[in-house]
Write a protein that binds this DNA or RNA. Structure first.
Length: 574
DNA sequence: GCCGTTTTCGGCCCGACTGTTTTCAGTCG
């Protein structure tokens, strides 16, 4: 685990403990804010400590800066250890129970001696808990439900699962009479790689009726809340859906507000206050007068800001960039001219090259690269040199047969543990495109892995490094590698790094993409499709790239056929 | 605990929903 993440987690836990101790809420927020900023940093916190620039990080002042230095130097934070002794260990994790907050928990601890989940569950079965001020039958049921939810809900859902699910629900809600402009908000609209619950916004006058109809939709298992502007339900599969109903006059303000991120909104509201305005989910107000609300653009305009794309609303410099008129011109799905990473029946894909090509052509692509696996990937039926040349012949024939799309003959070549590639150079040179990746030996130490990957990139025939960190969302951590070194190598050789669009990969992730685009290294956004339909995952990769501020000029497969062909050759000349 | 063209103290985003309240606290996003 990176130090950034470790420190982020510690600060968050410290915030939780301070919450239970009913400390100053603004101090607690400072810890949470710092945690988030450190976790999402694009550089290693150690480097910042070495440069003595900690207080340049937003939300880090002298005190938190000292704590970070202490952790980097000694591996621990004294104040954290002291704080941990003040509350029972099991109490902090109970904060994860929906409906049970720090105030109630602290009371339960003081008055009933509840220290952990076991204690809590036992108390909920008894009568004594009802004697506590503010506790009633319903509250008890609420907490029980919260515990069940925590036990079963588990992890955040990958974007690739949440997105189609949300689209189905939106379709259902759109059918409720009186609704208009139904749209996903929240982290889904920002296209975060995982989504906690699904937020949906709709425009209607008769809020109460809409919410009632919503809570009666067929996949709804449980209703958590149902007012006249807000409803929350749990679906059969355990997903929570929140629906908000607003009137047309407030649609833009509500969309802005419910899209978040929270940090982005807080900064916007702070700027509003400086201008003597107030922003809430109903609009922008000067004194009591509403001056904007129908559209997001209007709200931004009252702050003298251009509209900011949802994917970058994370308070990571986008508001400052907007103020300076230097917002990035983000890559769009429509900019993508081809897909350079996919598999066919020749290795572990499910259909023929021709079927993949036809599907790609249907998507309007100008080109694809067929990149089946190399021999070391036995499980994926990697091609022997002999079969590779047979496949090359098929590609040549298909290029004559199918008009309107160019098929590049390629390979996804394994990077062996010593950094050498799985085909000899005299074979690689016969391929139009070579993408290299790690498929084994994930547990290597950081230095060896970095050396391994850098060496592979240095092979003159390699065009791109694909799924560069090997992570699988919710299943496998990224392997240890010095990404800065990899980026530096790619930069010096003019090679590309992939944003793999497969929904469990999204690798590079948004944070790494941002690093890459900051130094001007090329990206290739591809799907790694094993089925024709998986070519559609491109939108996930493009969104990830957008979250990393990638522009069209950063992406090699946003070039037309001519431009890309030229790039493929140029890489090998350097 | 952080932050600053109303700077080194006094602020710190804002509203909905719920349950237990008789005017509001707690939780959530």
């Amino acid at each position: 685990m990176s130090k950034n993440r470790e420190i982020g987690d510690i600060f968050d836990t410290m915030a939780d403990i301070l919450d239970l101790l009913e400390d100053n809420p603004f101090r607690i927020r400072a810890y949470r804010n710092a945690a988030r900023n450190i976790r999402e940093l694009t550089v290693n916190i150690e480097d910042i400590v070495n440069r003595d620039e900690l207080t340049k990080i937003p939300g880090i002042g002298k005190d938190l800066g000292d704590k970070i230095s202490e952790f980097i130097q000694t591996g621990k934070i004294n104040d954290y250890d002291k704080l941990k002794k003040k509350v029972p260990e099991g109490l902090v994790e109970l904060l994860g129970i929906q409906g049970l907050g720090p105030k109630t928990l602290s009371k339960l601890n003081k008055e009933l001696g509840i220290k952990n989940l076991d204690d809590l569950e036992r108390a909920l079965e008894g009568k004594k808990i009802l004697t506590i001020h503010g506790m009633g039958e319903k509250k008890v049921e609420d907490i029980k439900r919260g515990i069940e939810l925590l036990k079963h809900s588990g992890e955040r859902m990958p974007l690739g699962i949440a997105l189609p699910l949300a689209e189905e629900i939106i379709f259902e809600i759109s059918k409720i009479p009186g609704t208009e402009g139904t749209i996903a908000a929240g982290s889904l609209r920002r296209m975060r790689e995982t989504v906690g619950d699904i937020d949906i916004l709709t425009m209607a006058k008769n809020g109460e009726e809409i919410i009632k109809a919503f809570t009666n939709l067929s996949p709804v298992k449980e209703v958590l809340a149902a007012g006249d502007t807000k409803g929350s339900v749990i679906l059969e599969n355990g997903t929570q859906i929140d629906l908000r109903v607003v009137e047309q006059e407030s649609y833009g303000a509500a969309l802005l507000y419910f899209t978040g991120s929270k940090a982005h909104n807080i900064k916007l509201r702070t700027i509003a206050l400086e201008k003597g305005l107030k922003i809430n989910e109903y609009g922008a107000f000067r004194d009591k007068e509403k001056i904007a609300g129908k559209k997001e653009e209007e709200i931004y305009k009252t702050l003298e800001l251009p509209w900011i794309p949802p994917e970058i609303r994370e308070d990571k410099g986008e508001i400052e960039a907007a103020l300076d008129s230097r917002l990035p011109n983000l890559i769009e799905l429509e900019d993508i001219r081809g897909d350079l990473h996919m598999h066919s029946k020749w290795s572990d894909g499910k259909v023929t090259i021709e079927e993949m090509a036809q599907k790609a052509k249907g998507l309007g692509y100008e080109y694809i690269a067929m990149t089946d696996h190399s021999p070391s990937s036995r499980i994926a039926r990697g091609l022997s040199v002999e079969r590779l040349y047979e496949k090359k012949k098929e590609v040549e024939e298909l290029n004559k047969k199918i008009k309107g799309i160019k098929i590049f003959m390629g390979s996804e070549v394994d990077i062996k543990s010593d950094g050498s590639l799985d085909y000899p150079d005299e074979v690689l040179k016969d391929l139009d495109i070579v993408i290299a990746s790690v498929h084994s030996g994930f547990k290597m130490d950081r230095e060896s892995m970095t050396r391994r990957i850098v060496k592979a990139l240095q092979n003159p025939f390699v065009h791109a490094l694909v799924h560069p960190t090997g992570r699988l969302i919710g299943e496998r951590e990224a392997f240890e590698v010095d990404m800065d070194e990899v980026i530096k190598t790619a930069k010096s050789l003019g090679k590309a790094l992939e944003v793999n669009s497969y929904y469990l990969r999204l690798d590079l992730n948004d944070i790494n993409v941002r690093k890459v685009t900051q130094v001007g290294v090329k990206l290739v956004i591809s799907t790694d499709a094993h089925l024709p339909d998986q070519l559609g995952m491109m939108r996930l990769g493009v969104s990830t790239a957008r979250r990393g501020w990638a522009e069209k000029k950063d992406v090699v497969n946003a070039m037309d056929l001519k431009g890309l062909s030229k790039w493929l050759k140029e890489v090998r000349k350097e």
